[in-house]
Design a protein around this nucleic acid. Sequence first.
DNA 1: TTGACATAAAATGTATACATTTTAAATTAG
DNA 2: CTAATTTAAAATGTATACATTTTATGTCAA
Lengths: 213, 213
Amino acid sequence: MLKKQQLYQLLKQDIQLQHWAPEQVLTQQQLAAHYAVSRIVVRDVQQQLMSEGWLSAHGKAGMQVAGFSAAEAEELCLLRLQLEPLALKLAAPALSFSLLGQAEDLLMQIAAQTALPAYQRGELNWQFHRLLYQSCGKPHLLRLLDLLHQQVSRYLGYQEQALAYTHTSALEHQQLVALLRSGNTTAACKVLTEHISNASTLLVQYLKNIKGA
Amino acid sequence: MLKKQQLYQLLKQDIQLQHWAPEQVLTQQQLAAHYAVSRIVVRDVQQQLMSEGWLSAHGKAGMQVAGFSAAEAEELCLLRLQLEPLALKLAAPALSFSLLGQAEDLLMQIAAQTALPAYQRGELNWQFHRLLYQSCGKPHLLRLLDLLHQQVSRYLGYQEQALAYTHTSALEHQQLVALLRSGNTTAACKVLTEHISNASTLLVQYLKNIKGA
DNA sequence: TTGACATAAAATGTATACATTTTAAATTAG
DNA sequence: CTAATTTAAAATGTATACATTTTATGTCAA
């Protein structure tokens, strides 16, 4: 029998894989029946996924699977651009070499596992970014960033298809670590900004195209 | 018998009025018994208030009433400073005169009702700010701002005591509207930044003092 | 005394049952 | 036929009961 945490993972995954179509309206009962759990569990997970942007309220009854739009992707990236460089700037003075080492290990891992599913690569990617921000000493900022990541991660599938960006991304990551290691915070923040901006542009452009098609 | 929405309001208010002391650890059963509702309702409200920063998880069982700290207040203000001017900049081109009029009505209302409870004045204040950002066309940004406001609003009690800021604040608000009306977006954003920064400094200073005392 | 283990109490997680609200359909008046 | 009102079905909200987990207590051996 599924428990809350399991249903949370599973439902999120099913939404990401578009087993439940975007914009589709679901009911608690539907989900409870489909996943063979009590509606109580569904309610909990529903509320969580709604606060994370995977589902949205739909009238007085039902929840709607979130759709995809270039505008939303652009907005999310704008917010990342506004907050992540700040987090990096605040974290930079507190970055230890051991932490940078961990970050580099993550980069190795990403580079090594070439044929990884989209969402797993995305997770590793975020772990890398998150690690760099960790030391900023601003729990609320980190919470917001996690929330943003949740919302962006819905687009990971698209990002995979959209971008043959993997190589460039890896280079930018390495550059970032190098700058941080040498203590050049300003340059690092600039690289980060461009890094996010680049990915953003490609993703948004791709979404606009498939929408036009 | 209390329903979910009512318990939500009531519990939040009781936390704000420190009927439940900061840092205190509560259980679902305690609250269910105290407010005479089922634990299901408490669970729902608990999850919501946790996502809004009024409660935080405490180990594997129990929830903790959020405390107050100068550091947290400062962080929240930093985030407001990072996001609100952006929202205003984006909204400015779309600001209609009717909306500015609404905003001015709110200012009148705040000025008129001189002896308002702290949290009600705070709410009106936020409604004013919110109105200016409304037209920015970025739902996620607005959501983040609402979330931030929720978290800041826990400090409204302090803000009241801390700041004989009311008069200055009103002046800054008026100045803000005037600039927006004349289409001077850049200056308006600057005034907004200073406005938030001022309130922030006073609040943080106050919190540091009473902590030292 | 201390610390580990067993056990009891309490708290939370989950399921079922019931109450209320919401949605949709069907009937009827105009 | 349209629109409004009634009525039935479905969905959600809430309470109670049970299961599992967590926490605290107490016992016993070293």
